[in-house]
Simulated assay, not measured.
Amino acid sequence: MLEREPREERTEVTFVLPADTPPGPVSVVGDFNDRQPGIHTPAPREDGERAVTVRLPNESTHSCRYLAAGDYWFSEPSAGDQDGPDSRLHT
């Protein structure tokens, strides 16, 4: 699930995952972090979910995916669009 918080010049996009699905560490990888795992890693929140926030320019489009343990890749269904295996995120 995605949470979006528009700001004056940026949009804060929070990637939210259940606490244990998928199990183990997960990274958000996309064109905004040169697809480098480990830069944007969801951390536990008080509500039991895991989340990480990325600040992106307003009115921009980005491609991203999740990478979980065991080389398990998956997309973000609430992003809206898909570009092949990637989710397309619009701010």
Score class of each variant (00 low, 15 high):
Asp47Val: 07
Ser60Trp: 02
Ile39Glu: 15
Pro42Ala: 03
Gly48Asn: 09
Leu89Thr: 00
Ser63Tyr: 00
Gly80Tyr: 14
Ala69Gly: 02
His62Pro: 04
Arg35Phe: 10
His40Ile: 01
Leu67Cys: 01
Glu76Thr: 04
Val52Ile: 14
Glu12Ala: 06
Val16Gln: 00
Ser27Glu: 03
Asp47Ile: 08
His40Tyr: 14
Thr53Gln: 10
Glu46Ser: 14
Asp34Phe: 03
Arg88Gly: 02
Asp31Ile: 10
Val29Asp: 00
Leu56Pro: 04
Ser63Glu: 04
Thr21Ile: 09
Pro57Ile: 02
Asp34Trp: 03
Asn58Glu: 09
Pro37Asn: 06
Trp73Thr: 07
Asp81Val: 02
Ala68Asp: 05
Glu76Asn: 09
Gly24His: 08
Thr61Trp: 07
Asp47Asn: 15
Asp34Lys: 06
Leu67Asp: 01
Asn58Asp: 10
Asn33Arg: 15
Asn33Lys: 15
Val26Trp: 02
Ser87Asp: 08
Pro44Cys: 07
Gly24Ala: 09
Asp20Trp: 09
Ala79Phe: 01
Thr14Asp: 05
Gly70Glu: 05
Gly30Phe: 04
Pro57Asn: 05
Ser63Met: 02
Arg55Gly: 12
Ser87Gly: 07
Leu56Thr: 07
Val28Trp: 03
Asn58Gly: 05
Pro25Arg: 15
Val54Ile: 13
Gln82Thr: 13
Gly30Asn: 10
Tyr66Met: 00
Val52Trp: 11
Thr53Ser: 15
Ser87Ala: 15
Glu49Asp: 14
His62Phe: 04
Thr91Cys: 04
Asp20Lys: 10
Thr61Val: 12
Glu12Met: 00
Val54Ala: 11
Asp81Phe: 05
Thr61His: 10
His90Asn: 08
Ala51Met: 11
Arg45Asp: 14
Arg55Asp: 12
Pro37Asp: 04
Pro85Cys: 01
Trp73Tyr: 15
Arg45Met: 14
Gly48His: 08
Ala69Tyr: 01
Arg35Pro: 00
Thr91Ser: 06
Pro25Ser: 15
Arg45Asn: 14
Pro85Lys: 05
Glu49Met: 12
Val54Lys: 12
Ala51Leu: 11
